[in-house]
């Protein structure tokens, strides 16, 4: 897969940065000329991934979240969101819809389900005590501007 463009940004796991992260991702993805619906799906999936870092990975602490976005040939957007937080003990269980470890914070337990249904491919790698990397892949519809 040939990478045509790439950006990286690091930010602190403060909840106010959830909006920053999804807006930055959307701004970078804009060069692919996505539809309004696609842009909304990207923003939503990124918001879920970053919120997981804020709420779970760095629960009660502040750590660094790294977001790397690549644009690959074929109108493919690859978003990688990495934290050095607590990690996930049981990934399949964490990915079950409605499963949450934060019901008191009114988390719906839908984060991974939303990432899955709003993108084409979701990969989760995690090591307890080391951190988690979530990779979202989305192929955008070809537009007229493509030659």
């Amino acid at each position: 897969m040939k990478v045509l463009n790439e950006m990286s940004v690091n930010f602190e796991s403060r909840s106010v940065n959830e909006a920053f992260a999804r807006t930055a991702a959307a701004a970078f993805a804009a060069q692919l000329d996505p539809t309004v619906a696609e842009l909304n799906e990207i923003r939503t999936a990124v918001s879920e991934a970053v919120t997981n870092c804020v709420v779970h990975a760095y629960r009660d602490t502040i750590g660094i979240i790294s977001m790397n976005i690549r644009i690959a040939e074929g109108n493919i957007l690859i978003v990688k969101i990495r934290d050095r937080g607590c990690g996930i003990e049981d990934i399949p269980r964490a990915m079950e819809p409605l499963f949450t470890t934060s019901p008191e914070d009114e988390r719906a337990g839908l984060g991974f389900a939303v990432m899955q249904s709003f993108t084409d491919k979701l990969t989760v790698r995690s090591k307890p005590g080391k951190g988690t990397t979530v990779t979202l892949e989305k192929r955008l519809s070809p537009r007229l501007s493509d030659v």
Binding site: T44, S47, E48, D105, E106, R107, A108
Partner: peptide, 13 residues
């Protein structure tokens, strides 16, 4: 203008 799954938690709560 935008809502992620936090909006769902808000409704359920």
């Amino acid at each position: 203008s935008f809502m992620d799954s936090s909006g769902i938690g808000l409704i359920m709560g």
